[in-house]
């Protein structure tokens, strides 16, 4: 790496990003644990039983945050991919690569917990309605981005190809989000809306919100943990990584 690079590229180098990520992880992890503990406390011990769904509704305290994260992380991943393509910045590609598995995990969890909510509520583990189907496609999209990256040996080509695939796939995110409005889905409409009064009791809403915040902090911590692994694996030939082994 040449010394004459502009300052901003120096700060966006993997070498500078590695220790910064390391410093941020404990904060995000700590906040995640606080939020998740508070969310579970409110969700199980404060929030009342739903008069229609009984206690099965409590599944939404993990289902809705997981579903939100599955879509949000995809957009963030595609955003890093776009920055990487635009600026040819390696750390941006690394961030995109670091986010994909966590996004896939939350997509799986949204589908899994959704099935366990659907069975007692609808009487079916799965239905091929627009919301569920488009979310399943999102899982395949995450898998596609990861597999494409893994299947190309040349890292620069792998970065660019998987970034393009991630970007093209962004069209599915608004489809998932608006599917309950555009089609007559079995899946219910949005529980939280910017424009309408909430359809849930305040304690239920706050449990869901705090859990979502916890998932958000968790995702940040885990993505940074993974990007540190990716940086070390990719830069293992560089002398700074050799020095970093003791840190």
């Amino acid at each position: 790496m040449s010394e004459s690079r502009a300052t901003w590229t120096k700060y966006s180098s993997p070498q500078a990003f590695y220790p910064l990520a390391g410093k941020l992880i404990p904060w995000f992890a700590g906040l995640a644990m606080i939020c998740l503990a508070a969310g579970l406390y409110i969700g199980f011990l404060v929030a009342p039983t739903d008069f229609q769904q009984g206690d099965s509704y409590r599944i939404i305290f993990v289902h809705v945050p997981a579903a939100w994260m599955s879509m949000f992380l995809y957009v963030v991943m595609a955003g890093w991919a776009a920055v990487g393509l635009g600026l040819k910045a390696r750390p941006s590609f690394m961030m995109a690569q670091a986010i994909a598995p966590t996004g896939a995990l939350f997509t799986f969890l949204a589908l899994f917990t959704g099935a366990f909510w659907g069975k007692p509520t609808w009487g079916a583990w799965w239905v091929w309605d627009a919301r569920l189907t488009s979310e399943l496609i999102l899982l395949f999209q995450y898998a596609g981005v990861m597999l494409l990256h893994a299947s190309i040996d040349d890292l620069r080509r792998a970065d660019r190809a998987s970034a393009v695939l991630a970007l093209v796939g962004v069209v599915n995110v608004p489809i998932i989000y608006f599917s309950v409005r555009w089609w007559n889905t079995l899946h219910q409409g949005a529980s939280v809306s910017m424009t309408a009064a909430p359809k849930m009791a305040a304690t239920m809403l706050s449990a869901m919100g705090i859990m979502a915040l916890g998932f958000w902090m968790y995702s940040a911590a885990v993505a940074l943990m993974r990007v540190r692994c990716i940086i070390l694996e990719r830069e293992r030939q560089a002398s700074w990584a050799q020095i970093e082994r003791g840190a």
Partner: peptide, 20 residues
Amino acid sequence: AMGGYGAYVWPSFGATALCM
């Protein structure tokens, strides 16, 4: 027992915790 829904509530939270 979760009001009879324990078999659905706990696997949801358990799977989420295990995965994370």
